[in-house]
Simulated assay, not measured.
Amino acid sequence: MELSLRRLRMLRELHRRGTVTAAAAALHYTTSAVSQQLALLERDVGATLFVRHGRRVQLTDAGLVLAEHAEEILRSVERATTALERTQDGVTARLVGGVWASVASSLLPKALTLLAVEHPGIEVRTKELAPEDTAGAVQVGTLDFSFVIDYSNYPMPWDPALTRVVIAVERLHAVMPPGTAPAETMTLADLAEYPWVLAGPTSHFGRAVRIACQRSGFEPRINHEVGEQATALAMVAAGLGVTLVSDLGLTLPPPGIEVVALTDPLMRTISIAHRGADAQRRPLQLVIDAVRTAAAAQGLAVSLPSEEPSITHE
């Protein structure tokens, strides 16, 4: 019997989440792909592993036994990977990281260029996901690490099985159409009467900004709901409203926009999340070091005590 690690990972998620749809979403596969792979796993082992009850799935006795062993097998593979990396004279590894737009366009190119020069044996591949989804993809094993965000007024829910290493702290700035900024600095409440360009309320960014506005005494009048900061900036440049943007989002600003410092700025922390069991993986730590160096080059460095290089949320 030959067992596929990918199929075992799918069975593990099916056991955890109860539906093929939920397992597929967690692993970033289509539902049909997961169903096909689980059917092949049943063929591999020669036993029925699950039965359907409406939309939910119940594992059979054989399925439960294999799911329990899948947890052990997958943890053993992670430990073996770490142990092998430690034995190598040169540092070589292939890591997959979760990114989102402003990180991918600003921090990541500088970090990977530095990494390629100092440690050419480390290959980093990336997948762009919504910031709300990246930590979950690390937890289920489809990513080795991911960039995550916490806003000063709206922390992201945290899985205690993951470790978070702080990379940078950013300010959010007001961005206004050309010729409309009333002063060099302003409060968030000063934007109450303007139309807004903002991400939807289900996004972490959109929710954090709405909370900040509400605490400043107003509900933003959102004329255009868009997900990407680059899109929002282009719409602001066209005179369609105001928005907030982070330091990284201003790496390539469109011409004409006016960036105004807020006297009561909303802050956000950028971190790298990884599984706690991977804390000793040297290639992962070298990637983190390279990203920190890139952040420092942009003036976003965070000073942490040398004896406590990572921060874990409980």
Rank of each mutant, 00 (worst) to 15 (best):
T19M: 05
T19N: 05
T19P: 01
V20I: 15
T21S: 12
A22E: 15
A22R: 14
A23V: 07
A23F: 07
A26V: 07
L27T: 06
L27A: 04
H28R: 14
Y29A: 07
T30V: 02
T30E: 13
T31K: 10
T31N: 06
T31Y: 02
S32K: 12
V34Q: 01
V34W: 00
Q36I: 12
Q36F: 03
Q37S: 08
Q37G: 01
L38D: 07
L38Y: 04
A39D: 12
L40W: 03
L40F: 02
L40Y: 03
L41K: 02
L41F: 03
L41R: 03
E42Y: 03
R43F: 06
V45P: 00
G46V: 13
G46D: 11
G46P: 01
T48K: 10
T48S: 15
T48R: 15
T48W: 00
T48H: 04
L49G: 07
F50I: 09
F50N: 05
R52G: 14
G54I: 11
R55V: 09
R55M: 08
R56N: 15
V57L: 13
T60Y: 10
T60K: 10
T60W: 12
D61Q: 11
D61M: 08
D61L: 11
A62K: 09
G63Q: 12
G63I: 14
L64S: 05
V65F: 03
E68T: 14
E68C: 01
A70R: 06
E71G: 01
E72T: 13
E72N: 03
I73T: 14
I73D: 02
I73A: 11
I73Y: 01
R75D: 14
R75T: 12
S76K: 03
E78N: 00
T81M: 02
T82C: 00
A83E: 08
E85S: 04
E85Q: 07
R86E: 13
R86A: 15
R86F: 02
T87N: 02
Q88M: 11
G90P: 00
T92E: 11
A93Y: 05
R94V: 15
R94E: 15
L95E: 06
G98M: 10
G98E: 09
G98N: 07
W100T: 11
A101D: 09
A101C: 00
V103I: 15
V103G: 01
V103D: 03
S106T: 13
L107A: 05
L107I: 09
L108A: 07
P109K: 04
P109A: 07
K110D: 13
A111M: 11
A111N: 07
L112Y: 01
T113S: 08
L114N: 01
L114V: 05
A116T: 09
V117L: 08
H119T: 12
H119W: 10
G121L: 12
G121W: 09
R125I: 12
T126I: 14
K127C: 08
K127H: 14
K127W: 09
K127T: 14
L129S: 02
A130I: 08
A130S: 13
E132Y: 03
